[in-house]
Design a protein around this nucleic acid. Structure first.
Lengths: 228, 228
DNA sequence: TACAATGTATGATATTTGTCATAGATAAAA
DNA sequence: TTTTATCTATGACAAATATCATACATTGTA
């Protein structure tokens, strides 16, 4: 079907340093799959043996807490590469990857990845850069979860969602999340998330149109996210 | 002074896959430094150009929050390797590394690391494994920070501290932290941390001997950390 | 269409946590 | 040693957040 060499997605991720031949190899061996809304691409604790490259669609990466609650760790979309742990011997998947809408995903087997790592140090470094960036983001998240009140984290999250998913044609954040999913992102009760969203709307900072959220006053939202 | 080939520390970290020649190269070019208690080995936002390998001593990795508070992200000790971001082009340090007691540290220049990455794919993979493990830990931390109450996080942290630093000859957790540092680890007010420590002591789960903490009933502490 | 299931919203209340104040304990400095 | 600064501890109170209850809205489905 599609060809890695022509895929636009690769320009934006760790695959961008690959040579023509390496891309051909990936293209020949890759499989393409469709993950329907609500289905898992990755499941916590499972083994996989290759990398997944998301072509399009949106998803969430989650973790089941010891108390049984779902925590959303990050959101994913076209261009993201998942499953890097699989190429490091037999490590198991650490997070669930669940589709928020239908996703198209390419799977590149571990063998090809390892071969390419051996031959192309820049690809190695790009993969490392990718993981490293994720670690940096995660460290920031720890700090914010630990020290910011829920209202600030909500504001922060709305800005983050707009950055990740952009705007639809009505200037709303272009992703549909339930209130529960928003609560599971910022780590609070669903009712609290609902209440704080209502407050932000009442203050004219955001607008709520069904499940869609529109940021009206970004600088004010930014201030709230920083505790003012 | 010391030689990388004979260093025991390397057996426990990403340097373990290096060949004799690679270790010689590292040994020839490395510099050794002493970081006094309270001093920074790394400072958030600074540029460095190489990896630091901790020989001995204990430290904390911190992040300054937008509200000016210090968040402790993780603790470090002998065997840990810091500064991996420096080998990925010009990325700046993301966290402060501050000595909790005097540390001895070896510095290996970026050039040697990059050369070795090109020549030894296993070293690449080991570095990746290291960062990947950190990312995994960080994701777990996000989930726990977001969803667990302070008391549970305190219990969790005490168990974690014992795992990392072990016990001294009086069976106390072998690290000295101020109550403020404990509070900055779990993300709460210093007074709250003090109060909850007192509660745990009153319940006979831990003992407090000055700044030293002794875990009396680990399984009970584990239960608390999981919300029971 | 009507029905069930799920999601959203809001009030009342309990619990958790933070803040401020104060005092004693410990460690550092003169 | 004495003095000063920092750290630990605890009470009183305020603020933030969770929980429970209930009602309404929306969505999917028989």
């Amino acid at each position: 079907m599609s060809n890695c060499r022509q895929c636009i997605i690769k320009r934006f991720n760790a695959l961008k340093t690959l040579t023509q031949e390496e891309l051909e190899k990936f293209s020949d061996h890759k499989t393409t799959l469709v993950i329907k809304k609500g289905e898992n691409l990755l499941t916590e604790g499972n083994a996989i043996n290759g990398l997944y490259c998301i072509r399009d669609g949106k998803g969430k990466m989650t973790k089941l807490n010891t108390n049984g609650k779902e925590q959303i760790i990050k959101f994913i979309k076209g261009g993201d590469i998942l499953g890097h742990r699989s190429i490091l011997s037999e490590e198991l998947v650490g997070l669930n990857a669940i589709a928020l809408e239908d996703m198209h995903v390419c799977f590149i087997p571990k063998g090809d990845i390892l071969e390419t790592i051996k031959e192309n140090a820049n690809f190695s470094l790009d993969l490392m850069r990718n993981i490293s960036q994720q670690l940096n983001d995660a460290n920031t998240a720890i700090s914010q979860m630990a020290q910011k009140p829920v209202r600030d984290r909500l504001a922060e999250t709305l800005i983050y969602l707009e950055e990740i998913f952009g705007l639809d044609n009505e200037a709303c954040i272009d992703v549909i999340l339930t209130r529960e999913e928003i609560a599971n992102t910022i780590g609070t009760a669903t009712e609290s998330a609902i209440r704080l969203l209502s407050n932000l709307k009442k203050d004219g900072v955001i607008d709520l149109i069904g499940k869609k959220i529109k940021i009206i006053n970004k600088s004010s939202l930014k201030n709230i996210s920083e505790g003012y």
